[in-house]
Design a binder for these strands. Structure first.
Lengths: 209, 209
DNA sequence: ACCTGAACACCGTTCAAGT
DNA sequence: ACCTGAACACCGTTCAAGT
């Protein structure tokens, strides 16, 4: 944000690459991912429109760096949610879902980038693939733990259950992001509650009874 | 597509408004919603870049007209799926889900427009709101019918069940659209099957047992 | 090694002018 | 009433030239 360097801006920027990623993260959060612009980021940092191309081959390359960072933050949030959740396997599953939709709610611009992915080069970025894969493993491991503890309906495939849980969480998060809830009878301001209730309903259906 | 008018193009286009919507629907399907361009649509129709503005106030207005059409097609598909489904309440619910994700699969560009909605002016377009609301009612009515027939677990709120079902279907359709399935262990070419299996798992969980 | 300035090919949008 | 031509303010991207 503020410059740590002296008042007179030198010819070389301190760490333009890092500054561009930060500026893009900020623009995505404030104006939406689609409206992140290389020229605007460059403007904010006081460099020319061509300067970003010294550090990123294209707009997509910058957005991919932003996506890597955003995905790390999401992963951190979900790990924190798990850490706070205690030991009950169902509670841990619930915490994971809440963590996911909660982060999506509070960081709409970043969520848009890592979920829609149309601005990312996933295939060319192993770090991104690994990060996204780790999130899947987190979900699947938590499902397996609940199964092992005998808290889920027996006989279901863990991968399928995890996929269903993820689809529901992603669906809810995106329904909110894409403003579907008004059409679906969720009163304004109650979106978080509705998402939590809906995830709880799914967990209830998944639980042994 | 082909011109019904004589070879010599007259000064006035026959029905430029309609032709622009068709061209945009076509571009959305072929190149993706984000890359629909007023200038490209105009070019294909042999009119100037300014001509579209006689019929649409902005790019968003054109995309909204496209969205109205796409939503009608989705609704038609889902009604057809219901009509083919017979009388079993659970089979009808399943048909609705399959119809939704199937259409999303086959018409990715149009699905993108009506689902992400970021290119649409929903608030200013009652026809669009009504069409989207009708889809919700279709889902909720089908859930209620299954409840009334005693085929679902008793005691659950129909609105919540419908929202869960929609979130799962939307989540799956968008996971596919946004290419999440590779990370989630779904082999290429098996996406449709995985989506159907996952929806069936949800239905199974929802069913009385 | 890193950045600027000017240019190019695109956009959406406006507006005076044509038919 | 409907469309064109030229313009404007934006983009992403390239490239020669500067420090």
């Amino acid at each position: 944000m503020a410059l740590s360097a002296p008042e007179t801006r030198p010819y070389h920027h301190g760490d333009l690459r890092r500054a561009l990623v930060d500026a893009a993260l900020d623009l995505a959060e404030r104006h939406g991912a689609e409206r992140v612009t290389l020229r605007e980021a460059a403007r904010q940092l006081g460099v020319s429109a061509a300067a970003p191309f010294r550090h990123f081959a294209s707009r997509k390359a910058l957005m991919t760096a932003v996506g890597v960072e955003a995905n790390e933050r999401l992963a951190l949030e979900m790990r924190r949610a798990l850490a706070r959740a205690g030991t009950s396997p169902l509670a841990r599953l619930r915490a994971l879902g809440r963590g996911y939709v909660g982060w999506a709610l509070r960081h709409a611009g970043h969520f848009r980038i890592v979920s829609a992915r149309d601005e990312l080069d996933v295939d060319g970025t192993p770090a991104l693939q690994a990060g996204m894969h780790a999130l899947r493993d987190l979900t699947e491991d938590t499902v397996r733990a609940a199964q092992a503890a005998g808290e889920l309906r027996p006989g279901d495939d863990a991968g399928r259950l995890a996929l269903l849980a993820r689809a529901a969480a992603y669906g809810l998060a995106r329904m909110h992001h894409d403003d579907h809830f008004r059409q679906w009878g969720v009163p304004p301001g109650r979106e978080a509650q509705a998402m939590e209730d809906t995830l709880n309903l799914l967990l209830d259906l998944m639980a042994r009874r």
